[in-house]
Design a protein around this nucleic acid. Sequence first.
DNA 1: GTCAATTCTATAAAGATTTTATAATGAATC
DNA 2: GATTCATTATAAAATCTTTATAGAATTGAC
Lengths: 225, 225
Amino acid sequence: MTKEEILIIDDEPQIRKLLEINLESNGYKVTQASDASMGIKLAASHPPDLILLDIGLPDKNGLEVLKELRAWFNHSIIILSVMDDEESIVQGLDNGASDYVTKPFRANELLARIRSCLNRNKTVDHHTALKFDNIQIDLIARTVKNNYEIIKLTTTEYKLLILFAQNQGRVLTHQYILKEIWGVGYQNDTQYLRVFVGTLRKKIELNPNKPTHIITESGVGYRFN
Amino acid sequence: MTKEEILIIDDEPQIRKLLEINLESNGYKVTQASDASMGIKLAASHPPDLILLDIGLPDKNGLEVLKELRAWFNHSIIILSVMDDEESIVQGLDNGASDYVTKPFRANELLARIRSCLNRNKTVDHHTALKFDNIQIDLIARTVKNNYEIIKLTTTEYKLLILFAQNQGRVLTHQYILKEIWGVGYQNDTQYLRVFVGTLRKKIELNPNKPTHIITESGVGYRFN
DNA sequence: GTCAATTCTATAAAGATTTTATAATGAATC
DNA sequence: GATTCATTATAAAATCTTTATAGAATTGAC
């Protein structure tokens, strides 16, 4: 399995270092930002699986940063803060933080809370094998079979298929798919998506001209069956 | 909307009372159990949306209760505990607790953490589905079924249907519909509307010549049933 | 009430526009 | 050096707009 990525946004170098050592020794990949604007940029260009957000940053109000991130970032955000008052905690949680941990924090507790957050969205992954008629997806092995024969998918094709498979039956808009696969900033590059849906169809559809799995919803997006 | 249900499992009557008052005044429905076996039974017979679990129960080890619940209970479980040591917290979280709050707790913080937990699964659970005889509308999936078969609607047709469905029984004037779907400036293009009501009827009416869903109110507009 | 004139409505179909699929080419990555 | 991705071009398909026409409903004079 590929390492889970955690983005640390904190202005104190010692804290970042401490977190980095702790997280890396627990098998996470770590990226860092020393202020809000850099953090937001990093998160947008390369979305991590979880963000550790110091709420007391020098360049921007912490709650604003949280709101800004929450406008598009769906994974967990854990707030780190020296503020222990009830009001701050309530505000943080009500604005979309997944958890609120006060500094100084206890390393193992923080790690447990990180694990808890990362596990939340994993229930879907637990069915390690997804099946849709002729195609079978093994999430652990990262293999896809079409009629019991393993087919080769590129990284992007695979991500796309997983996204479809995990949202079976729902219409996913172009924008949403582009955001999930290519990242924020690519929402208008619908053409990318078309090209990749095309190649995916060639690989998983029995008759790519008459797709039964990836249904186009004209003017909106695609739906997976 | 129907009230969300919270189950309190705690052996101290004062705590239960305090929680009950707090939760009910915040719009939750509360059920209570004073020991583990009663709590598990209650949760099984009538699953709540969230469980507040005291980890120090007299009749059973707290972690055991948690594991037992987690074997089948997928909603959130928040642990309440007097134990503030790191080891207990880590154990609680790693065994599936959604959060761990130490006693004495601060009421508003607990409420915020409850809100946070309840919000987590909301997008997934609440499949907003509208139903009118033969037709079913799933607003999240953006799909429409006629007699359990998905039918294809264009963007405009879909918008129109949603507008109708959300104003069931009311007469909507041509002008109003045109403004809502096509925008200001199209209020006089009644012909657009006629064409689209026509195609919609073909797709959702059992007998498009004798429409039962989209009723024309001559000289005024349409009404949806 | 009846009947014709008028207005309103339904539907088909052609034209315009938007959206989609696909191939192909150069750039980037490994 | 091969694979994968980004980007452009273009043809095909889907959707929307618009026009034409026939049928239904409404109105008002008798």
